[in-house]
Simulated assay, not measured.
Amino acid sequence: MLIGYMRVSKIDGSQTTDLQRDGLLAAGINPSHLYEDYASGKIEDRPGLINCMKALREGDTLVVWKLDRLGRDLHHLINTVHNLTGRGVGLKVLTGHGAAIDTTTAAGKLVFGIFAALAEFERELISERTLAGLASARARGRKGGRPFKMTAAKLRLAMAAMGKPETRIGYLCKELGISRQTLYRHLSPTGELRPDGKKLLNQL
């Protein structure tokens, strides 16, 4: 069975799925087997796409007008197609840059395999550049990574709260916007300052 998916980004009426619908119907898809979304391709949890994925069964083929209608993030596309392949579902792209993709054929699988290899290569390059950047920053006396969310004001509030037996640590961390790990790196379970906590207050 052929099942079609359509998507446009704007919901203000300036964009319609008419062109996509015509293309999918011309490809032989029954109108009752069409799903659509009015949402950005960067959003993975789209109602129409979720229902479409649920409707697909082994032996079916998901058909899209263009590859970017399925999603704009390459990694999301790769993961989606791997999910479909694992379920025995094919993917066919009618037009655009991904028109050579038809995972129900050997040639289409080869093209998609190249896409997947390029995505993996891109991930490795990003990882290498990140590690190189951190090493360079450390060599210049700077530390990389996300800054701690603990501040002197939050630390004082935590000290006062942890001195009370009724304080619930999980709730306290949520209110302060920090993790348990960050909290206990600065304070002991009884609210006493640890080296990181003393260092933070001494900076003032």
Rank of each mutant, 00 (worst) to 15 (best):
R21H: 07
R21M: 13
R21K: 15
R21N: 06
D22T: 14
D22L: 13
G23D: 11
L24W: 11
L24K: 11
L24Q: 11
L24G: 10
A26V: 00
G28E: 13
G28L: 13
I29K: 06
N30W: 06
P31N: 03
P31G: 03
P31Q: 02
S32R: 14
H33C: 06
L34H: 00
L34W: 01
L34N: 02
Y35M: 08
Y35G: 09
E36D: 13
D37T: 10
Y38M: 12
S40L: 05
S40K: 03
S40R: 04
G41R: 04
K42I: 02
I43K: 14
I43R: 14
I43E: 09
E44P: 00
E44Y: 03
R46D: 09
R46Q: 10
R46A: 09
P47L: 05
P47E: 05
P47K: 04
P47M: 05
G48I: 10
L49H: 08
L49K: 12
I50T: 15
N51L: 14
N51G: 12
N51M: 13
C52E: 09
A55L: 04
L56F: 05
L56V: 10
R57W: 05
E58N: 10
G59D: 06
G59Y: 08
D60F: 04
T61Q: 07
T61S: 09
L62M: 14
L62W: 08
L62H: 06
V63L: 04
V64I: 03
V64Y: 01
W65D: 13
K66I: 10
K66S: 07
L67Y: 07
D68Y: 02
R69W: 00
R69N: 03
R72A: 12
R72Y: 12
D73H: 12
D73P: 06
L74A: 15
L74Q: 12
H75P: 02
H75E: 15
H76T: 06
H76A: 07
L77M: 15
I78P: 03
I78F: 02
I78Y: 03
I78G: 02
N79F: 03
T80L: 06
T80N: 02
N83T: 15
N83Y: 13
L84P: 12
L84S: 11
G86I: 11
R87E: 07
R87D: 05
G88C: 12
G88M: 13
G88Q: 12
G88F: 13
V89L: 11
V89C: 12
G90H: 09
G90W: 00
G90I: 05
L91W: 05
K92N: 02
K92G: 00
K92M: 01
V93A: 07
V93T: 06
V93N: 07
L94C: 09
T95K: 14
G96M: 05
G96W: 03
H97R: 06
G98S: 02
G98C: 00
G98T: 00
G98V: 00
G98E: 01
G98I: 00
A99D: 08
